[in-house]
């Protein structure tokens, strides 16, 4: 059975990829929609990787975008300042992939450092420490003139596109899904449910907590690198506390611990926020009310409250779509 189930996600991803490419090629989808899809996919990586830390292992990180920032700055520095590549460079794509992976590894190292306090701290105390780390990372970027300081790291070549981003998102989903369904994943769930009990039955809780931070940070770093090569810049304010909260919303709105939920929420909330632009304008045009873009976030925040009131466990709860599941659950 297992061999048959494995490629289902791959087939789905390929169909999705081809469909979007065809729609875009025939100009049914414009560049704007494609841009939102790209952004959503990057948020999928961020949300799923944060879900590994917060949802599956039950730690509380408030500094996830700090990891993304490390990935963005390290990969951006490599591609822009060290190799000075541009999209027409002969080995550009290879260097880009190398830069993104090094960015992810650098973020993983930071994740390893931040994982340590989690050995001593729990719950909200840990949240504060991760928040503090995130802010320290931001202060550091703000003060290194080599990477632009408050001007930001500019002129990053645009290597991220639909293809590279969807490949990265697919790999993230597969790796984290496989991890969760492995014995390591069971151990992580045990840490979430009851750390002391897990310890008593022989789970090395230290190892699994640090592992969750390292792997989560690695993928966040990848997402940060992709973001930098999509926007062609990296700026310290993109990686602050408020941005981390945005990702947090996605995992809880999607359902804690559900990879499917995080994925759906990343798409739904990104599209919602953009759809409201058009929705508000349509209402303003139809009714003649003097309302503009300033009301978009008012509606967004109200919808967020309603989602949580009516789907209290998030969109998916802890369930996974059949597509994501590796094994059949009885």
């Amino acid at each position: 059975m297992k061999q048959l189930k494995l490629p289902k996600l791959l087939i789905f991803a390929l169909i999705f990829y081809s469909a979007i490419q065809i729609l875009y090629g025939t100009e049914i989808l414009n560049g704007y929609i494609l841009h939102i899809i790209n952004q959503s996919l990057i948020y999928v990586i961020l949300a799923v990787s944060l879900n590994l830390i917060n949802g599956i292992t039950g730690q509380f990180s408030l500094g996830h975008m700090g990891f993304a920032g490390v990935g963005a700055y390290v990969s951006g520095t490599i591609s822009t300042l060290v190799f000075k590549i541009n999209p027409s460079s002969p080995n550009g794509m290879l260097i880009f992939i190398f830069a993104i992976i090094v960015g992810g590894l650098a973020a993983a190292v930071v994740g390893f450092l931040i994982g340590f306090p989690s050995l001593r701290l729990k719950g909200d105390y840990l949240a504060i420490v991760t928040l503090g780390f995130g802010e320290i990372i931001r202060t550091v970027f703000n003060n290194i003139d080599y990477v632009g300081g408050p001007r930001g790291l500019l002129g990053i070549p645009k290597f991220s596109n639909f293809t590279t981003i969807i490949v990265a998102a697919f790999i993230t989903l597969v790796v984290i899904r496989n991890l969760v369904e492995s014995s390591h994943g069971r151990a992580m769930l045990a840490v979430r449910e009851n750390e002391l009990a897990a310890e008593l039955v022989g789970v090395n809780t230290t190892r699994y907590k640090v592992m969750a931070f390292v792997i989560g940070a690695f993928f966040a770093g990848i997402a940060g690198g992709l973001f930098a090569h999509l926007l062609q810049m990296a700026h310290p304010t993109q990686f602050g506390f408020i941005k981390s909260v945005e990702v947090l919303i996605m995992i809880y709105a999607g359902g804690v611990g559900s990879i499917t939920g995080s994925t759906i929420a990343a798409f739904a909330l990104t599209f919602l926020s953009e759809g409201l632009r058009i929705g508000i304008r349509a209402i303003a045009d139809a009714t003649g009310l003097p309302i503009g873009g300033e009301w978009r976030m008012v509606v967004y925040s109200l919808l967020l409250i309603f989602i949580m009131l009516f789907k209290t466990e998030g969109l998916m709860g802890t369930k996974e779509a059949k597509l994501i599941r590796l094994k059949e659950v009885q």
């Binding site: 809880y252 804690v256 008012v298 925040s301 009131l309 466990e313």
Partner: peptide, 28 residues
């Protein structure tokens, strides 16, 4: 209140929602 006996993180998200609403609403 409606989320009192639900996972505590659900009310965390409504708290963020309330916060955003108050800021954006007054600003708009």
């Amino acid at each position: 209140k409606p989320l009192r006996y639900k996972p505590k993180l659900s009310s965390l998200i409504t708290a963020i929602g309330v916060s955003m609403f108050l800021e954006y609403f007054l600003s708009a």
